[in-house]
Simulated assay, not measured.
Amino acid sequence: MRRVEELLPGVTTVTPHARYYSLHAYVATVLSARDDLAPVDTLRRCEVVFAAVSILHARRFPDEHRGMAQAHGQDIISASMSDGELNVAKLAAARSYAQAKRGFLGPYLASERLLGLVTPGGELLHPGPNADARRLESAFEGLLDLALKDSIPCDVLEDYSSLCLCGRDARERGWLRSLMFPNQLMGEAAPP
């Protein structure tokens, strides 16, 4: 583990999905821009919708998800969607899709701080010096609107594959890669 930390700062074996780094930075930027949102509730709601989109995308395109770990909370969220509806409010409630108060932020937080994506503060977190609010807003377009709904038909979520954890359509992919791997790798320049 120590060697991984030295060679790849910000990368650990307990954080299997790179897009959660971006997701948490996005939530931090949203919370810093809006004081009408409850921080923990907003984080949990965003994680629930993000996972639900990822679950549906994996069902539809299993080959694109082969070898990937499942979305956090997958078992509980997937089972709850059996009636074709995602009950965001119920799933985001305390001890529902995640036992920890702050959802799945915990395993990612130290790495996100190291990468400058978030900084500690208040009840949750604030954007770090490397959080690019415009890029994150573009990458997670529509997520907050969905997360603020109490219930969403699953067929509506099918239209948001850009939010999937697989990153196939991730608009922040190059940016996140440049933060995680700031030096050139194998002769490739860091992406824009």
Score class of each variant (00 low, 15 high):
residue 99 Q to P: 01
residue 61 F to C: 14
residue 63 D to R: 14
residue 69 A to H: 08
residue 37 L to Y: 10
residue 34 R to E: 14
residue 97 Y to T: 07
residue 70 Q to N: 03
residue 52 A to E: 11
residue 83 D to K: 08
residue 70 Q to W: 11
residue 37 L to W: 09
residue 78 S to A: 14
residue 40 V to Q: 04
residue 28 A to E: 10
residue 29 T to A: 11
residue 88 V to E: 03
residue 85 E to V: 12
residue 81 M to N: 06
residue 45 R to L: 04
residue 89 A to T: 05
residue 21 Y to V: 00
residue 62 P to Y: 09
residue 84 G to F: 13
residue 65 H to K: 03
residue 46 C to K: 05
residue 46 C to T: 06
residue 63 D to C: 00
residue 101 K to H: 08
residue 100 A to D: 14
residue 71 A to D: 09
residue 95 R to L: 05
residue 25 A to S: 10
residue 64 E to C: 01
residue 101 K to S: 12
residue 73 G to F: 01
residue 63 D to I: 03
residue 48 V to L: 05
residue 91 L to I: 03
residue 55 I to C: 12
residue 91 L to E: 02
residue 26 Y to W: 09
residue 64 E to H: 10
residue 93 A to F: 10
residue 95 R to T: 06
residue 55 I to Q: 11
residue 33 A to Q: 15
residue 72 H to N: 04
residue 55 I to H: 12
residue 81 M to I: 06
residue 87 N to D: 15
residue 68 M to E: 13
residue 72 H to I: 00
residue 23 L to W: 06
residue 37 L to R: 02
residue 37 L to Q: 03
residue 78 S to M: 02
residue 64 E to W: 07
residue 76 I to K: 14
residue 55 I to F: 07
residue 45 R to C: 08
residue 83 D to L: 03
residue 24 H to I: 12
residue 92 A to V: 04
residue 57 H to M: 02
residue 73 G to Y: 02
residue 33 A to P: 05
residue 60 R to M: 12
residue 45 R to Q: 04
residue 96 S to N: 14
residue 95 R to M: 02
residue 53 V to F: 12
residue 32 S to R: 13
residue 44 R to M: 04
residue 75 D to N: 12
residue 36 D to W: 11
residue 28 A to K: 04
residue 93 A to Q: 14
residue 37 L to E: 11
residue 39 P to A: 09
residue 74 Q to A: 15
residue 100 A to H: 13
residue 94 A to P: 04
residue 49 V to H: 02
residue 52 A to Q: 03
residue 45 R to T: 01
residue 88 V to I: 05
residue 64 E to L: 12
residue 70 Q to A: 12
residue 76 I to Y: 00
residue 100 A to I: 01
residue 44 R to T: 05
residue 27 V to D: 06
residue 19 R to D: 13
residue 21 Y to N: 06
residue 30 V to N: 01
residue 88 V to T: 03
residue 35 D to W: 10
residue 58 A to G: 10
residue 31 L to R: 02
residue 57 H to G: 02
residue 64 E to I: 00
residue 62 P to E: 11
residue 47 E to C: 10
residue 66 R to T: 10
residue 20 Y to S: 05
residue 80 S to F: 03
residue 40 V to G: 00
